[in-house]
Design a binder for these strands. Structure first.
Lengths: 164, 164
DNA sequence: GTACAATCGTCAGGTTGCCTTGTAAGGTTT
DNA sequence: AAACCTTACAAGGCAACCTGACGATTGTAC
């Protein structure tokens, strides 16, 4: 940092690399999803597709898993209802609550999306070799799941729950 | 995807892992930066600290490096001017333009920030071993800089230019 | 069994981080 | 000097989150 007059080409930090890689994968996924005919699904909606169970799930639980507020997830669910991917059915066990369920179309979209994500990963594996990809996965999993030396404790719940 | 009734614990995709790791590093960095007394610097400001040269830089060039519009970067520069980290001085070579320069305080902040990012990476290296970190870096660099099989071409310019 | 507190979802409104469009001032070209 | 680029800025919009404050239930304590 203090060698030389300044950093002409700024140093690639771990953060910038991780962020760039994330964006790269995300962009690829978005493109594939769009090409598959699901242009109306935005990346934000992923938190619903990712966590919702087939037998339905309450908003509160979904929000908890996604690490977001009920209001925010509620908005996304509104979108997906309008788009016909999910529906809210009254919870038979609690008349306050509603169960958020995937429609048939939603189930299909979920299947396709997870498939495309797996394809992206497969392409990476082709480029870098399956061995390296396994290493990468292991490393990232360890970095994320373990107690990081300095991460804020409240983050740990969210960490696996952010993007689709 | 279609084995078993459904995926109870959703599968960790490459995307979710990368995203989680990014967030983890970012959170750690933010915390460290705050503890170092720079709570007023937001992550978004990183695109200025990251790319600005010591001898100053025009808004247009900065925006180009950051992969953002001039207006967006201009706003961030406004913030940093208010906070005393940068200043706009008239460009002697073009009276339309202004050079965005770090103040002494800004230079110090930049030094500290890059140092803290390096510290985060060192801590990762301690946890996983220097060898694995090198592998991780190499892999990410390759994934990001090479022509990805399916990435949008316009992304490639931006890819290394997003977060601090 | 009635009062009280907690929980479920929603409404209203705000913040952040970006973008697009338009405009005025300063250069460049011929 | 007329036409055309730039440079920066101002105004306004949008997406993706947030907080706070409800009404409608439900579970809990007297």
């Amino acid at each position: 940092m203090s060698d030389g007059p300044h950093t002409p080409h700024p140093p690639e930090t771990l953060l910038s690399l991780l962020d760039a890689a994330t964006e790269s994968v995300l962009a690829e996924f978005r493109r594939d999803l769009e090409e598959a005919g699901y242009a109306d699904i935005r990346p934000t909606h992923g938190c619903v597709f990712r966590f919702v169970r087939d037998d339905g799930m309450r908003l509160t639980e979904l929000a908890g898993l996604a690490g977001m507020t009920k209001q925010s997830v509620g908005e996304l669910v509104d979108d997906l209802v309008d788009l016909g991917y999910v529906e809210r059915i009254p919870d038979p066990e609690d008349r306050r609550a509603k169960l958020i369920c995937l429609t048939d179309r939603g189930i299909e979209a979920q299947r396709v999306a997870f498939g495309l994500l797996a394809d992206v990963e497969d392409r990476w594996a082709e480029r870098f070799g399956a061995t390296r990809m396994k290493q990468l996965r292991k490393l990232l999993e360890a970095a994320v799941s373990e107690d990081a030396p300095g991460a804020a404790p409240e983050l740990r719940e969210r960490r696996l729950a952010s993007v689709s």
